[in-house]
C-alpha cells in the first residue's frame, strides 16, 4: 500500500476544479488510457493571467491529487509565472509523493506546459525528440529534462519520474546512456542513427529554422531582441542579431551560451554558431 500524505488523500477524495472550461484559452491533453493515466487541463486566460483552470483525470490517487493542486496553484498566476512551475513544486505542495509516483506530478507539469503552448499557439519541443520508451511514448528530450530538473541519478529514478523503462524494460541501456551523457555534460549521441547523426545542409537549415522560430526567437523577443539565420556552411551556422541584441554587451554570450547550446541540443551536437558580419 502506498504511503500518501494527508494532503494527497484530501485532494484525491475531494478534488478541486473538476471539469472542463467551455471555450478555453488553452488545452493541455497528456497521457493516454494505455499508459494508465491521462490528464486534460483547460485554462481560461485573460490579459496573460490564468483566471480559471479545470481538470479531468484518469489515474490513481496521486494523479488526481496532483491535478487538483495544479489547478489551485496556477489560478491567479500570470502565464509566465505558471510556465516556471515544476513538477517538484506540485509534489511539494502535496507534502511529497511516493518516489514511484513522481511521474504523476510530471504529468501535471506537462499538461500545464501543453495548455500554455496551446494558448500561445506554439508547438512543444518535447514532442520533437526521439522516442526512447515505446511502451509509454517517452522521448529522449523528456528524459534529459527530467534528469536535469529533478537531479536524477539512476535508471530507476528516471522510470519513477517519466515512466520510461517501466514497461518491457528494453530501453534500460539507452536510458543509462542518456543518464551518463546528461550528467557528464557530454552531448547525447543520437539514438536511432549508427553513430553521429548525418544531415544534409537543407535538412539542417530547416531544422535550425524551426528551433529558432519555436524556441530562440520568442526568448530573445522578451528582451526586445531578435535573430535571423543567414547561412549554414557545414557545421557553421551564421546568424544575424537584430533589435536590442545589436547594442547588447552580452550578445556574444547569448550567442554561444544560449543559441548555440539550444541548437546543439535540438538539432545537431556539432554545430558552431557565429555572427554574420
Amino acid at each position: 500500500m502506498w504511503e500518501y500524505t494527508d494532503k494527497v488523500q484530501e485532494h484525491f477524495l475531494h478534488p478541486h476544479n473538476v471539469g472542463e472550461i467551455e471555450k478555453p484559452s488553452g488545452i493541455g491533453d497528456v497521457g493516454s488510457l494505455a499508459c494508465g493515466d491521462a490528464l486534460k487541463l483547460t485554462l481560461k486566460i485573460e490579459d496573460d493571467v490564468i483566471v480559471d483552470a479545470k481538470f479531468k483525470t484518469f489515474g490513481c490517487a496521486s494523479a488526481i491529487a496532483s491535478s487538483s493542486v495544479l489547478t489551485i496553484m496556477v489560478i491567479g498566476m500570470t502565464v509566465d509565472e505558471a510556465e516556471k512551475l515544476t513538477n517538484d513544486d506540485i509534489a511539494d505542495y502535496l507534502g511529497g509523493l511516493p518516489k514511484e509516483k513522481m511521474h504523476c506530478s510530471v504529468m501535471g507539469r506537462e499538461a500545464l506546459e501543453a495548455a500554455i503552448a496551446d494558448y500561445r499557439g506554439v508547438i512543444l519541443p518535447m514532442a520533437e525528440g526521439e522516442v526512447v520508451c515505446d511502451c509509454f511514448g517517452v522521448t529522449d528530450l523528456d528524459v534529459i529534462r527530467a534528469i536535469k530538473e529533478s537531479d536524477l541519478r539512476s535508471v530507476e529514478e528516471i522510470t519513477n519520474f517519466t515512466k520510461a523503462g517501466g514497461g518491457c524494460g528494453k530501453c534500460e541501456d539507452t536510458l543509462r546512456d542518456i543518464l551518463q551523457a546528461t550528467i557528464s555534460g557530454i552531448p547525447v549521441v543520437p539514438l536511432t542513427a549508427d553513430g553521429p547523426k548525418r544531415m544534409t545542409t537543407l535538412q539542417k537549415i530547416k531544422k535550425i529554422e524551426e528551433v529558432l522560430e519555436r524556441e530562440i526567437k520568442p526568448a530573445l523577443k522578451k528582451d526586445g531582441g531578435d535573430i535571423e539565420l543567414v547561412d549554414v556552411d557545414g557545421d557553421f551556422v551564421m546568424v544575424s542579431l537584430r533589435g536590442a541584441c545589436t547594442s547588447c554587451a552580452k550578445s556574444q554570450t547569448t550567442l554561444k551560451e544560449y543559441v548555440e547550446k539550444k541548437l546543439r541540443e535540438l538539432v545537431l551536437d556539432t554545430l558552431i554558431v557565429e555572427e554574420a558580419k
Binding site: 502506498w2 484525491f12 477524495l13 494508465g36 493515466d37 484518469f58 489515474g59 490513481c60 490517487a61 494523479a63 488526481i64 514511484e100 511502451c135 509509454f136 522510470t159 515512466k163 517501466g166 514497461g167
Partner: peptide, 28 residues
C-alpha cells in the same frame, strides 16, 4: 483506474485487489 477505486472502497473498509498498473508495483 483501479487504485483510485480501491482507495475509495477502503474508505468503506472494503478490501479487494486490482490488476491496474498503479497497484501492481510496476507501471503496466
Amino acid at each position: 483506474e483501479g487504485e483510485a477505486i480501491l482507495l475509495h472502497m477502503n474508505i468503506h473498509n472494503i478490501c479487494a485487489s486490482s490488476g491496474s498498473a498503479c497497484t501492481s508495483g510496476s507501471l503496466e
